[in-house]
Design a protein around this nucleic acid. Sequence first.
DNA 1: TCTGGGGTCCTAGGACCC
DNA 2: TCTGGGGTCCTAGGACCC
Length: 419
Amino acid sequence: MSIFALVDCNNFYASCERVFNPRLEGKPIVILSNNDGCVIARSNEAKKIGIPMGAPYYQWRQVCEQHQVHVFSSNYELYGDMSQRVMSSLERLCPDIEIYSIDEAFLIFDGFSSQELYAYAVQIRKTIKQWTGIPVSVGLSLTKTLAKCANKLAKGHATDGVWDLTKRESQDKALTSFPIEDIWGIGRRLSVKLHDIGIHTAADLRDEDRSLLRNKFGIVMEKISHELNGTSCLPIETIQPKKQIISSRSFGKLVTELSELEEAVSHYTALACIKLRKQKSVASGICVFLHTNRFRESDSQYSNSLSYFFPDATDDTGYMISMVKQSLKKIYRKHFRYHKAGIMLLDIKPNHIQQLSLLSTIDTKKQSLMTTIDAINKTIGKNSLFFCAEGIEKRWQIKREYRSPRYTTHWDELVVINS
DNA sequence: TCTGGGGTCCTAGGACCC
DNA sequence: TCTGGGGTCCTAGGACCC
């Protein structure tokens, strides 16, 4: 029988900061979202202080200062690179792997006894720590959902960072005190509804009449119940190309001018196109959106979006920028203070099964231009070449006052050791 | 002053087809 | 008395995840 292991990095972003700055060990750390807006990651010490996930930073700044919390802007280049190191290490330890998020992966094992597997999980944990510096926890069980539960227990209680829920007795014991809101796939709204009908723990949900669950909540809930019962409904999935790519940011300052919005939106388009070409795909359309700051109740509010579909699916940044600027002009209104804008690439397909229009004229020169730009930027550094439309000053760019060095991706930001 | 960003899946309802 | 029935595709909205 197959056993799923969920490997999850502990407080991933905070751990990444610690790898290159060991003085942070044992200290409270928080990491802020883009624009230094919200708290999006916390070390255990920061959790203990009571700083909640998602809290607006300006409301917690004082508390942070008071407790000498180390505050960082998000450093996605560092976290992304560290994630790759963790994932490629895991791939060497187990060939059957699904990378589920930046800090989690499911592994699948066949033919291990549960004692052997427990020992191997402990080994995996040690190896990842040694190779990357990142601490991880491992949850073991018969389904993905149970492995998630096991991982949660590993984080809370396990001494060696591994929790085994493969045996029915251990499941019974754990699930009767496992709150439904902690189950993977049950969010805030569903847990309220479940409590209303008397389902309070994972065991309650597991033992509930599944046709009732199906009728009341749909197939997702029915599957969760099966999964909690040890029947696997969610297989390991291989990496799929994205079906849509979104690129958007809040601005570092409120923006009123069309010209600045054009720059921002062009820049986001360029970023999205890089991702698009990287996964060897083309997009059939692009949607542009913008809105004012809904938290500023005294400001007049406006939001809008507009999609444009291309005659032929494409990955050409220049063409998309020109189209997106036209769309933006149509939805732009003067006299509003804009807080955020973005674009979404729509109906993405692999570039080798491109459906051409009757009158299509694919421009191979442009294709090789994009390939060349990507190659140059890859060799001599990001943004070495970019479209003028993206702007040079980029005054609307996000704030990142507390970003740590990009230790692993920039030569001039390498870690320095003072003797 | 200051409130993230990027994704997926499912469902219901409408449009349309034969 | 008694409006056809069965199917697909698309979209918007809701829910969730990290």
